Simulated scan of single mutants.
Amino acid sequence: MMCSVTFVWCLFILSIVVRSDPVDYNIRGTIKPGWEFVRDLFRENFVQDRDLGASVAAYYQGSLAFELGGGWFDQSRTKPYDIDTLQLVFSTSKGFVAAAVALAVQRGLLDYSALVTRYWPEYGQNGKENTTVADIMSHRAGLPDISEPFEQFLNWTAMIRTLEQMAPLWPPGSAHGYHALTYGWLAGELIRRVDPKKRSLAEIDSFNEPRTHRAEIPAANGIATAWSIARLYSALNTDLDDGKYKRILNEDILKLATRSNTPEDEIDLVLEEKSSFGMGFSLFHDALSDFGPGIFGHGGFGGSIGFCVPAKNFSFAYVMNRLDISSAEDYPRIAPMLKKIAEFLN
């Protein structure tokens, strides 16, 4: 009898010890006072096995609010995933492209309302003569897809020649459909044409095979950290680090770049659902309505995202190495975190 009681007490004590020493999932980083709740919500993604490795970061009023990394870089869980781990972020890259084009507009190198042929004469053929820069930036150019073999994706010049010769699927400017890959080449070639040094987006800005990473597919193969994405979106909207670094875009250009160019309730002909675009930026007023109006950014395949809430002077980014394709719009792995952050800001 005494042995049985002793055994039960040992089990009870062991359960207390186990519960009081939770797994930390390699979660490391920086959190300013008041934002500690983010760590708990971030950790929950690992507890629930939603993430293998991930990083999250945010800027508030021009300063870093939090930056956390956690989990594992590899399936065998031998290498930690930390705040400096570089991550393929798929279409979150489109936000970087949009920022580069907006900067070109600010410098007078591009005009959203101008015809593409003003900068790229060879583009004006086979029904594309009246395409504007705005049409390209807001997915209204009529070239949402391309059937070339993957090897050609690695050849910028070949892709540009193909796009020049294509006929649009709809009259440019008359409708919109998500240009998943072609957006990057179209916008990227505009940058090449007007940049005084003739640089590509890869040279201006800073699929998992190395050869693909070396290719320029601006719409889909950007590599970044959560910190770099959050910092970029903050810098588009405000000065950083107590004024040490000036904002990238002035207020007028930012408003122009993030104003909707999609008629209300217009259906995306590719996604077959409502979507809204400014000049390259996704407008998240429906998907992230808890933050209020004016939210802009871009998400990527599998769940990565970066966005800015200008009215709150807040930017956020999340990147990860486990792709969740269950719901691209609702961002289920970060929905509880974003809800709590919105409550905190409001």
Rank of each mutant, 00 (worst) to 15 (best):
F7T: 14
V8S: 13
P22K: 09
T30G: 10
E36F: 01
D40T: 11
D49S: 05
L52A: 01
A57G: 07
A57D: 03
Y59I: 04
Y60H: 08
L68N: 02
L68T: 06
S76P: 03
D82G: 07
L86Y: 08
V89D: 05
K94T: 05
F96R: 08
V97P: 03
V97Y: 00
Q106F: 09
R107T: 04
L115D: 05
L115K: 08
R118F: 05
R118N: 11
W120Y: 12
T131C: 04
M137S: 00
R140P: 00
A141K: 01
L154G: 03
R161F: 03
T162F: 02
T162W: 03
Q165M: 06
M166W: 03
W170Q: 11
P171T: 14
P172W: 11
Y178L: 01
A187H: 02
I191S: 01
I191R: 01
R192H: 07
D195C: 04
K198D: 08
D205T: 15
N208D: 13
N208M: 10
N208R: 13
E209M: 11
P210K: 12
H213S: 09
A219N: 07
G222Q: 05
A235C: 11
L240S: 07
Y245F: 14
K246A: 12
S260D: 10
S260N: 06
D265L: 15
L269T: 04
S282R: 10
L283I: 07
F284M: 03
V309N: 00
K312L: 13
N313A: 11
R322Y: 02
P332I: 03
P336V: 08
L338Q: 07
K339A: 09
K339L: 06
N346S: 09
